[in-house]
Nucleic acid binder design. Structure first.
Lengths: 380, 380
DNA sequence: ACACTAAGTTCAGAAAATGAACAAATCAAC
DNA sequence: GTTGATTTGTTCATTTTCTGAACTTAGTGT
């Protein structure tokens, strides 16, 4: 079905997905087409069930009718291979999660494909038209993925090397499948479903056990030459600092990831199991807790400041699963950003904090499928 | 003339400018067009004098004829406002410099426009058809330029704030004019004329009195949200280090720019006027010289390593005007890059060093004009 | 009720691309 | 040398896609 869309139709779909509902005339102007051409394209897409008319906007002259993507014109499945059991969700074109379940995690691609195939029917029966309108499966994993979003070039976590996971799943399930790095998937979901829809260039920093990062540049996910763009976790932030499992020293990961923060607290003898615990300790004046949060916060802030200096993004979106950014940690991060960007820049780059739930990765995965459906692999 | 090219014609011109001479069939495949369509487009461009046939390649079957851009189908003027007197060059579509002269530098845009208007005729009379085929003027300056490449948003060096320089020059001379930040202009000239032609994503680090940097991402110059992408000079590289004229501390600029290196040597009582002098001192065992080069080199290396981690470019091109990269400085830079990138990355990102002459900035400026001629502002 | 305004449609015609047949230029081989 | 295989590049009728201009539609303002 996707392949049936013409180049102009896809462009239109893309514009609406970025800007939200638009009138035909607005769309014509945005795409640089005539009203006549627009009329036909819109009619075809409405007939196909991709678009539908929404509100009518009254002004001077004939009122305009806004067109929007029909949320239920396509459904996507997203699977996160970052947790065990692996979450598996079904969502629509708006990123709304319709059903949720899980499957056992495995390191064997065949077993994964099998588990997905088994789980699919149960997921799809939650919505009457999901089965026939299932348009893709997306898989998020920790590791490097090639530019076709089909092969996992390398994953330490899964112990993979050149695994054509997407192809295996595609063949087993018969559904179009794409895989992507976890942080990049989150960035895509923020662009497609989230708070960065209308922003052309932005970076997402996802803070969890590890630290992930991905860039959208000029409206496109930038994957980097080896798929490694955004590997901010292994930027040297404390020259000569503690050794990192990657083999070098002073990586951001050793100072600012949740895992590092917890390890540092344990080493200091603090009985903390979450960021909130440490924040609490710090607020009561515990010197070790304060020191740890300071170190972690200023490290992350410096890394983000470097990112801003290097790429001048239109937005930094920090997503975090645990704790909050209202405490010492968040304050230090913000301070460190401010003191390390060119003073004239300071405050010029919006920093948005977003607490995300356990569905981030699965939703991110689904967004990869949705992105390929909406915009396609070759972004002409 | 530029505006007369259709979208397909421009795409074709772009592909040839990236890949060099190609046969019609190859071009058809690259653009995803039929041979029939290609035939017509090529004929039109040959008639327009933009393309011409070059070598014939023999294989099996009918030999193919390669088409290339006609170097003398368009001429460009490039002016660098980074030096006094300001160099002014005339070059063709290959970036070959045909004539060279200079004009007095001024901070008054009107005076600059006047000086250009005065200088133009002399520059153009050096080539019979330059005058009629002059297709644009490019100006390189130190500062921030808006996305239309028309207004200088801010320049400390020239003490400007929102100066519509391109418009002023355009109106005075009647020639299409674009301005650009110095480092970004160099990146464009490397993409268009230089050693990064076929590379889609790369970064140029230009080492001179200051340190500039610019990124090409997916075949396009990435300017950043405020035109500030690549402001690597003010990345914090030595947290809590020496104060920088920008207002913060420990900027790369304070440790690794030629200006900083020279200042440090002066402070250490070394009688050095150039990088080579300091390298010489270092090679005879002078501890201060060695210390300075180490500091500068490891700073630059760390910054580049961060850039690699963040953006994973396909190439880092370091351009330098002075000295050489064969000595201690270059060695330290390379070492610092290696030790600060993810070990699995090490050596994966090609680092190319290029010594450039005094024409870099003016040639870069001309390339901005050429880029707008070839690819156009709206890169559809 | 009347003009006025702007959205969206229709339709003939222009522009751009395609597919299939064909002409052209070479190599390979007998 | 002539013949066949092979691949480039052209031609042309046809299809697809877009445009411009006229027109219809659905409101607002007076």
């Amino acid at each position: 079905m996707n392949a049936l869309l013409t180049s102009s139709q896809r462009q239109l779909v893309r514009v609406i997905s970025e800007s939200g509902p638009l009138s035909r005339t607005e769309m014509a102007n945005l795409l640089g087409l005539s009203k006549a051409a627009m009329s036909g394209i819109a009619r075809d897409l409405i007939d196909l069930g991709v678009l539908h008319e929404t509100e009518t906007v009254y002004g001077q002259g004939r009122p305009s009718v806004r067109l929007d993507l029909h949320p239920e014109c396509a459904f996507f499945v997203g699977i996160s291979l970052l947790e065990d059991p692996a979450p598996m969700i079904l969502c629509d074109l708006n990123g709304k999660i319709i059903a949720r379940q899980s499957m056992p995690l495995s390191r064997d691609p065949q077993v994964i494909a099998e588990a997905i195939t088994e789980g699919l029917p149960r997921l799809l029966e939650t919505h009457p038209s999901a089965k026939e309108k299932l348009s893709g499966i997306g898989v998020a994993l920790s590791g490097f993925v090639d530019e076709t979003q089909s092969n996992c070039v390398q994953s330490t976590l899964l112990n993979w090397q050149d695994v054509p996971l997407a192809k295996i799943i595609r063949e087993r399930t018969g559904v179009e499948t794409f895989i992507e790095n976890d942080a990049k998937a989150v960035a895509v979901s923020e662009k497609l479903f989230g708070s960065a829809r209308e922003i052309q260039s932005f970076s997402v920093v996802s803070l969890g056990d590890g630290i992930g990062c991905a860039h959208f540049i000029d409206g496109k996910l930038y994957r980097g030459n080896h798929g490694g763009a955004g590997e901010i976790a292994h930027c040297t932030i404390e020259p000569g600092g503690s050794p990192c499992r990657c083999g070098k020293r002073g990586c951001l990961d050793t100072a600012s990831s949740m895992k590092a923060i917890k390890e540092m607290s344990r080493a200091e003898g603090l009985e903390c199991v979450s960021l909130s615990d440490i924040e609490n300790e710090a607020s009561t004046g515990n010197a070790a807790a304060i020191r740890i949060l300071h170190r972690a916060g200023s490290g992350l802030g410096l890394a983000i400041a470097n990112l801003i200096q290097i790429n001048d993004p239109g937005l930094i979106l920090i997503t975090h699963v645990e704790g909050s950014f209202d405490g010492l940690f968040g304050t230090v991060v913000n301070q460190a950003i401010e003191t390390n960007v060119l003073p004239r820049y300071a405050g010029q780059t919006p920093i948005r904090i977003k607490r995300v739930d356990g569905d981030v990765w699965a939703r991110g995965a689904a967004s990869i499928a949705a992105h390929n459906f909406l915009i396609g692999p070759n972004s002409n």
